[in-house]
Design a binder for these strands. Structure first.
Length: 442
RNA sequence: GCGCUCGUAGCUCAAUGGAUAGAGCAACGGAUUUCUAAUCCGUAGGUUACAGGUUCGAGUCCUGUCGGGCGUGCCA
């Protein structure tokens, strides 16, 4: 989610016309699980008190039972799939329940996105394509692209042992069916040149096959370039894949709380009484959120990464905090020096580069374009994070060695103020492209 | 079994085929009467899993071996 958000911002800044669509899973087996849970394990009082909490408990409960490697687990899996199939075939009861559940689930998800500062142009979701699925399968059958296999319908591709299944033998549709419908819809509606899919690399085979199936489906037409922008798996501290499926929003939420309260504690110690408390909590929010977002983005997205509490919450070293700190230091100089930024920017005096730290900083400032380009080229926000770290690092060295307000003469002072201003603007812009906000004081 | 992918400093990670493989954390030693020490300066830490090959040049490309992860028709 955070990688996608950063890429949308970066690609837009670069000049691309970007449409973001959160392809949310609101029509799949997870609703079969919730339906089954609702029928068998519902706690009515809890549901009335908080539908969100109860539904998510039911989901986790059923999931856990299903994941058991026992006979009961397998049986339950079948029953869940039956609920899903009933929903897909238009069973009125399941449909009514589904309509009741979707807004509840959406609300939960929206709240998290809002907190993370993530916005989508569309959230069509899988259910949106549901009416298109049956005609799509019929069409592919008629054109001979798909055929019946062991009771199901699949598309067979050269060089692959397994077909792309688009209808189960119980009549329900699958991930690939929706994906194909999505391609058709998006071509018609948006005429994109490129479609980026941001998902876990474990879905690589699916996308490889699905892209080929899409090419068959659109044979003779102009197909947009389809790209799987894959990212690595989050591993636990033991190196084993993290189970994010069992209630991950809760985990993220408490992580955010912790990040903010840690930031607040440091803030209170540092700027304490000089500032108003409402200010501080907003500043802490930006710093805490920034730390989490940066931890996620600073990694090469294709590498697996080991989840570490301390790493996610770190505010020293190569972190968003470091950049925010550099920015705040510039702001502090400007405030103390009563600097009129507008007139500074308009003034024609050249920037002088005499000290080694000044030259190093200026050289780094010039590399911004390059950083953006490489982030765009490979869809990799970590190219931008490492640039920003480098830039902030050069600024810190400059800050230590080159007095600004107390510079020897006025022209040096003006020149250094300009360097400060350019640095602050570049950091602010760069962070904004990553979805991270700056703070005036910290 | 087959396919994909990864293996880089104690830990977490960088490095369009190009210079002496770089950061952060942890460790150790310094820096504050001077614009924010969430900082800076320095020390130590490497046979880039292993063995071959291609190349003027390989962490990066090819082959093999070992080890980890993932995937492998009716989940998404």
């Amino acid at each position: 989610t955070m990688i996608g958000n950063a890429l949308v911002r970066i690609l837009r800044f670069y000049g691309h016309d970007v449409i973001s669509d959160n392809h949310i899973g609101d029509w799949g087996t997870q609703f079969g699980m919730i339906l089954y849970g609702y029928r068998h394990f519902l706690d009515k009082n809890a549901y009335e008190a908080s539908p969100v909490a109860e539904l998510s408990r039911l989901y986790r409960h059923v999931r856990q039972l299903m994941d058991q490697p026992t006979e009961e687990g397998k049986q339950l899996g079948k029953l869940v799939l039956e609920e899903t199939a009933k929903l897909h075939s238009g069973d009125p009861e399941n449909l009514a329940l589904w309509k009741k559940f979707v807004p509840v689930c959406m609300e939960e998800i929206e709240r998290m996105y809002k907190r993370l500062g993530v916005e989508f142009d569309h959230t069509l979701g899988e259910s949106f394509y549901q009416p298109m699925l049956a005609p799509l399968v019929d069409d592919l059958l008629r054109r001979g692209i798909a055929r019946e296999t062991e009771g199901a319908i699949g598309i067979f591709l050269d060089g692959y042992e397994i077909p792309v299944l688009i209808r189960k033998k119980d009549g329900a549709f699958l991930y690939s069916t929706t994906d194909l419908a999505t391609v058709q819809y998006r071509i018609k509606e948006f005429q994109p040149d490129v479609m980026l899919y941001l998902t876990d690399f474990r879905q690589s085979l699916h996308f490889e096959q699905f892209f080929k199936a899409a090419a068959l489906m659109e044979a003779g037409q102009k197909l947009p370039e389809l790209v799987h922008v894959k990212f690595g798996t989050v591993l636990g501290e033991d190196g084993k894949p993290f189970k994010t499926r069992s209630g991950d929003t809760v985990g993220l939420e408490s992580l955010l709380d912790e990040a903010e309260s840690r930031a607040l504690a440091i803030l209170e110690k540092n700027v304490g009484e000089e500032s108003e408390s409402s200010d501080l909590s907003e500043t802490a929010r930006r710093i805490g959120l920034g730390a989490l977002v940066y931890a996620d983005l600073s990694q090469n997205r294709e590498s697996d990464y080991v989840f570490s509490f301390d790493k996610m919450l770190a505010m020293n070293g190569n972190t968003a905090t470091y950049m925010q700190y550099a920015y705040a230091r510039v702001r502090s100089i400007f405030t103390r020096g009563n600097v009129d930024v507008d007139s500074l920017r308009r003034s024609p005096e050249p920037v002088q580069l005499s000290a080694a730290q000044e030259r190093a900083l200026a050289m780094e400032l010039l590399k911004f374009d390059e950083a953006i380009e490489s982030a765009v080229r490979d869809y990799r926000p970590n190219q931008l994070t490492s640039y920003l770290y480098e830039l902030a690092n050069r600024y810190s060295a400059f800050f230590e060695h080159c007095p600004v307000l107390k510079a020897d003469d006025e022209s040096v002072k003006r020149s250094r103020l300009k360097l400060c201003d350019l640095t602050a603007r570049t950091i602010q812009l760069g962070l904004r492209l990553l979805g991270i906000e700056t703070v005036e004081r910290m």
